[in-house]
Design a binder for these strands. Structure first.
Length: 577
RNA sequence: GCCGCGUUGGUCAAUCGGUUAAGACGCCUCCCUUUCACGGAGGAAUGAGGGGUUCGACUCCCCUACGCGGUACCA
């Protein structure tokens, strides 16, 4: 009788959490939140043979990463626990209802062994009916309490003969319900078999468990994948016999997520074959040792992952494609969910991440990028910054030092970043709304300023390594071939003079100042700035890529910039002779 | 085989009987940029087929085709 909106996600802990699974969670979650309801995690571990250790924790971790945290669940508890069906079975919950059904004549004991059932299928198989069902047409030929003499049933039961309890489905009836996405769906009971409700090991099958638990947990809406549609009539019958059809939750069967090429449900295999993740997070099967990469490890932001999943089968009717979780909660609606499945497009998925990377301030993901850098052994502090900012006086002394020494000294002298010096270059970052009504964003660290500068050209998190790595580590190789052909003594001289100028100026300027000074000098030397810009870029980053060259120099620090120019100048004169 | 669900460009998709059938991704061209991106402007590309209903169908109905899902003591 509860009017409270309550939804559940009910996975079985058998492996990695699939894209489609996360989307099912998402739609459940959005609907629950939008209606001020609750979202429940229930673990359907009724098949003991398929249990995979660690899978439950993994699922919970995935939900957490996605920001789709349940209000109740095995890890959190709640007033409707336990939330694991194996534990509920131990309480005798399912058996009670199964027996109630037998009492009422809606179910019966079946003593057939799996082998006997197999024989039956073999025996009655015809080209027209390749898989005969255990149902109204055939059950009279089987060993069950419907057709065995009562004393024989009692004897078997008494002797402890293994049995299952099956639902008795009467033929020639119409069963229909209203699906929130598809409208009215009708089935005839003729094609429905007598599904097993309680297995020989005492565990319920999904069919019994889902109905009983949805009732006991007062679930108001049940969203699940389309693959469940064919078993809906069994569930409806169970509701009718057990709790009343009018108490049934509102159902919705979500369209499938299809593989990008050809047709069919997206599987982990497709991901491996086509080179993209299918699971939310890394998953290694403890039995086979088989590993699969997840969206998280591939470098997706959870915001982007959720966003792209939301759009795979739903839209708000406008052209908006980028949604925050708050917007999704506000705007999501089941009547705009599609009926048809959607092919997964990894290119579009990457686009979503790119958009999020660009729109979010680097502070939102800099720890993730830093972890990536740490992993690669790339420092995340700027070489030479302290020496440079401290004073300009020692610059000439440094000239004597050879490259290697200068480099390692610079690295070592920088154990920490001084917060004070980080605010200096901020005007470059036009994208940051420094003046707004919102509480002031914390100032960017030097590392974050670098990320802000390069994020436009990063699609996935690991892209920051090649795009920002050179700020902290000298280029492993210098593309000399790009400058050598047009290299002249005049240019050599220019750069020598440039270094001198830089050393002389009282402080290291921002990008604009540096550019102005550079152009002035170029004019004085009568060289087109364009002929000098590329060489400077190569000197600083090693190749023909990266943000504006003076933005790089400004963030690189004076000392490091000079060292890099000098280093390449050396290489150039070496190879000249 | 049977049952159910589905079908608008290569992909995601808008349209809820009347539009030159939006928009996005990807692709191509150009502009911006003394690199690479970002950004901007264009371009190619779509209603599975056949019948109806209607003054008028992408839209409603039927048939066919195709695809998918199910047809387990798996979920």
């Amino acid at each position: 009788m509860s009017k409270k909106v309550r939804l559940r996600f009910a996975p079985s802990p058998t492996g990695g959490l699939h894209l489609g699974g996360v989307r099912t969670v998402l739609y459940n979650y959005l609907f629950a939140r939008q209606h001020g309801g609750e979202f429940i995690l229930r673990i359907e571990d009724t098949d003991q043979t398929r249990l995979v250790p660690g899978a439950e924790e993994y699922i919970i971790d995935c939900l957490k990463w996605c920001g789709l945290e349940p209000d109740e669940g095995p890890h959190k508890g709640g007033p409707f626990g336990p939330y694991r069906q194996s534990e509920r079975k131990a309480l005798g919950i399912y058996e009670k209802y199964a027996r109630q059904l037998v009492q009422a004549g809606h179910a019966y004991f079946a003593f057939d062994t799996p082998e006997e059932i197999e024989q039956m299928r073999e025996k009655f198989k015809t080209p027209e009916n390749p898989s005969p069902q255990y149902g109204h047409a055939l059950r009279h030929r089987m060993r069950n309490s419907l057709h065995l003499p009562e004393e024989e049933t009692l004897r078997l039961l008494d002797a402890g003969t293994p049995y299952t309890i099956r639902i008795k489905v009467d033929p020639s009836q119409q069963v229909s319900f209203t699906d929130m996405i598809r409208g009215q769906v009708t089935f005839s009971t003729d094609g429905i078999d007598d599904k097993v409700l309680l297995k020989a090991d005492g565990m319920p099958t999904y069919h019994l468990a889902v109905v009983v638990d949805d009732h006991l947990m007062e679930i108001s809406h049940a969203f699940r994948g389309e693959e469940w549609l064919p078993s809906a009539p069994v569930h409806i019958l169970l509701w009718r016999y057990l709790f009343g059809e009018d108490k049934m939750p509102h159902w919705a069967h979500l369209p499938l997520i299809l593989r990008p090429d050809g047709n069919g449900k997206l599987s982990k295999r497709d991901g491996d074959r086509l080179g993209f993740p299918v699971f939310a997070m890394n998953w290694t099967d403890p039995k086979t040792g088989e590993a699969a990469t997840g969206f998280r490890e591939r470098g997706f932001l959870p915001e982007a992952f959720v966003n792209l999943l939301a759009m795979l089968g739903w839209n708000d009717g406008t052209n908006q494609e980028i949604f925050t979780m708050a917007e999704l909660i506000q705007k999501f609606s089941m009547d705009r969910v599609h009926k048809g499945g959607a092919k997964f497009d990894f290119e579009k998925a990457k686009w979503f991440n790119h958009e999020w990377l660009k729109q979010l301030p680097a502070t939102a993901y800099s720890p993730l990028v830093k972890a990536l850098f740490d992993q690669q052994g790339i420092p995340t502090e700027v070489p030479g910054a302290i020496a440079d900012e401290a004073t300009a006086k020692e610059t000439t002394a440094d000239e004597a030092a050879d490259e290697a020494a200068a480099e390692s000294a610079a690295m070592e002298s920088l154990p920490i970043i001084l917060p004070g010096i980080d605010n200096i270059g901020i005007p470059i970052l036009g994208a940051v709304p420094i003046l707004s009504d919102e509480p002031a964003a914390p100032p960017f660290t030097h590392f974050e300023k670098v990320l802000e500068l390069v994020k436009d050209r990063c699609t996935l998190l690991p892209d920051f390594v090649p795009n920002a790595g050179f700020f902290f580590q000298r280029p492993a190789s210098i593309d000399l071939a790009a400058v050598q052909p047009k290299w002249t003594p005049a240019k050599q001289l220019f750069f020598v003079e440039l270094i001198r100028q830089w050393q002389l100026q009282p402080s290291w300027g921002d990008a604009h100042t540096l550019e102005a000074g550079f152009k002035e000098m170029a004019a004085a030397a009568a060289i087109k700035p364009g002929d000098l810009l590329l060489p400077l870029r190569i000197m600083l980053v090693g190749g023909k890529f990266g943000p504006h060259v003076f933005d790089i120099a400004a963030l690189l620090s004076r000392q490091e910039t000079i060292d890099r120019v000098r280093h390449t100048l050396g290489l150039l004169s070496e190879s000249k002779s």
